[in-house]
Structures are given as structure tokens and as C-alpha cells.
Simulated assay, not measured.
Amino acid sequence: MENYTFNSPTLQLEALNVSEASVYPVFLLFLFAYLFLMVANMSIAVLILIDKNLHQPMYLLFCNLPLNDILGNSILMPRLLLDMMKPSSELFISYYECVVQAFTTHMFGTTSLTVLMIMAFDRYVAISNPLRYAAIMTNKMLMKLIASAWGVALVLVGVLLGLTIRLNRCRTLIESPYCDNASLFKLSCESVFINNVYGLTFTVVLFTCSIGSMVITYTKITVVCLTSKSKSLNSKALKTCSTHLVVFLIMMFSALSNITLHRFPQFTDYRKLSRILFHIVPGSLNPIIYGVQSKEIKIFLTKFLESKKVLPLS
């Protein structure tokens, strides 16, 4: 039974629908995934920062993805893992912590797409204008692109949450294992028409820009490759663009699955799981995909491992 108080400082979360026998296996699975995600992304980020051979625009732009994955999951996953070990009657969260969690969640998703958009621009310049690449992708340009990716996400998400926190609350139940914007404004008994309109506009604009930029960029890259007789250029384009495209498709599939399931209340349990996997899956696969595909990263790791070999005792 919901407690209909106004602006309660404490909210209640819905638990994952996991059987008692499956709690510990699911907990261990999520714990392993979280630890792997954090270690893999931290390793990639540190590797790019310390290896001068990786101080290239492509890797410096990509470095924003592991940083975003670390920030997005460090707020969500520890709390989620702790809540899994509690009975559903004890799943409480403060309103302010809930707002922070919602902000972090939306920043994670939005920044992932904006970073992938500027990475697409970088790949287009590298392939269509290889001789002018260094002149175009200067340090100043890199800073502008990175600032725009994070800045646009910050403004869009800031307005999204700003429209929600202005509302008075008459409910306390968050219909999810963690907080997001939709679950927050559903606590209000006031009109949420503006929230729905902005939320829909936000989603449509973000996805249209993301998909549109990819289609335009890769269409132009394909034209360049088809009209070029350079095998090395085509090989480079295939290698770098396939990696970027796979990462983008994984992110889009995770996001669209989450949004689609949100529209079907009968799939509540799948929706809850999908929202968690939205954080875990892209963040876990990104470092693997780039680590396997990147020649420079593989060379660095090989040298590092060789330097750490234990010499035989004399």
C-alpha cells in the first residue's frame, strides 16, 4: 500500500523479481560483471593516458567512453548490489539520492551517444581527408568536441531533471530497482504534460541526431572507399569504422530495448532487467571491442606483459 504523503524525503524502490534460490547466483553474476566493467574500463583509460603512442584523436575521444562507463556505473551498481541482499520491505532511498541516481543514469546514456557522434566525425575526417587530418583534429578541436559532447548532455539532462524536481510528490513508490526521470515524475499528482513532451522530444532529437549522423558519416565514408583504389585506406576504414559501428549498435540496441519495454507494463520484470543490462552490457563490451581491434593497444599490452615476466632464479 502506497503512503500518500506529500514530498516525502524517503522513497521506496521495487525489488527485482528474483526467486530466493536465485538471489545469490544473480548477485554474483552482477558483482562479477560490475568488477570486470570497472577494471577493464579503468585499465583502458589509464593505458590511453600513459602511452604516448595512444595520444591520438581517435583514442583520446574513445577515452571518454570508459570514463563515462565508470561514472555511470559507480553510482548505480554498488547500491543495486546492496539492495539485492535486502528484503523488499527495506528498499528505501532518499529523494536526493534518487535524483542524483536519475541524473547519473541519463547522463550515462546521453553522453554515450554524443561521444559516439563526435567519434564518427573523427573517423570521417581521418578517411576522407587523411592529408589534412592533423591540421583539422588539433588539440583545440579535440577539446571543443569533448566539451560539446559532455556539455550538450549536461544541458539536456539538466533540463529534463529540472522539470521533474519542480513537481510536488504525493506518492513514494519508485516502480524500478533504481531511479530515473520517468519513475520520479510519476510520483507527482500534478500535470506532467510538459515532462512527457520534453522527455519525448529529448529522446526523438537525441536518437535522430545519433542515427542521422551515423548514416550520413558512414555513407560518405563508403563513397570515399568505393571511389578510392587504395587498399590500405579501405583496410583502415574497415578496421576502425567497424569497431566504432559495433559499439554504436550495441548502445542503440540496449537503449531501444529499454525504451520499448517501458511501453509494455506486462513485461515489468524484463524491463527491470533490461534497465540494469543497459548499464552493464555496453560498458563491459566497449573495452573488449577496442582492445581486440586496436593494434596499438595490443602492442602495449604485449610489451607490458613481457616486462612483468618473472626471471628464472639463478
Rank of each mutant, 00 (worst) to 15 (best):
F36L: 08
K295V: 11
V18Q: 01
G151Y: 11
P287A: 08
P78L: 11
L35N: 08
L163Q: 11
V26F: 15
S210R: 01
M251F: 14
F108T: 02
M141V: 15
M143R: 13
V155N: 05
P130L: 00
A126W: 04
L49Y: 13
I276W: 06
R263S: 10
N17D: 15
I299N: 14
L54M: 12
L173D: 03
L82I: 06
Y290R: 02
S89F: 10
V39L: 03
Y218F: 15
F193S: 09
R132K: 14
T240P: 02
I75C: 13
T240I: 08
E190H: 01
K298H: 14
I297A: 04
T222E: 15
S88A: 13
T217G: 05
V18D: 10
Q101D: 13
T110L: 13
N68Y: 09
N68C: 14
L311E: 15
K52A: 08
L285W: 09
K220M: 15
V247P: 00
V39T: 04
L238W: 12
L238A: 15
G162T: 11
N3L: 03
L277W: 07
K236R: 13
V155W: 09
F202D: 07
Y59W: 07
L116G: 01
K229Y: 13
S112F: 12
L61H: 03
C98M: 01
L145F: 13
H106Q: 13
V204F: 12
K303V: 11
N139V: 04
E14T: 09
R263L: 10
T219Q: 06
M1G: 12
S74A: 10
L305D: 06
I48P: 02
L47K: 05
L156W: 13
F267S: 02
F300W: 08
I146W: 09
E90V: 05
L37E: 08
S230K: 03
V292G: 09
L116I: 10
V197H: 05
L256G: 04
N139G: 15
A255M: 05
S88C: 06
A21Y: 03
L13H: 03
N68T: 14
P78N: 06
F264P: 08
N53A: 11
V26S: 12
E2N: 03
N181H: 12
F103G: 02
D269N: 10
R169G: 03
L233P: 04
E90G: 05
S148V: 12
N234I: 01
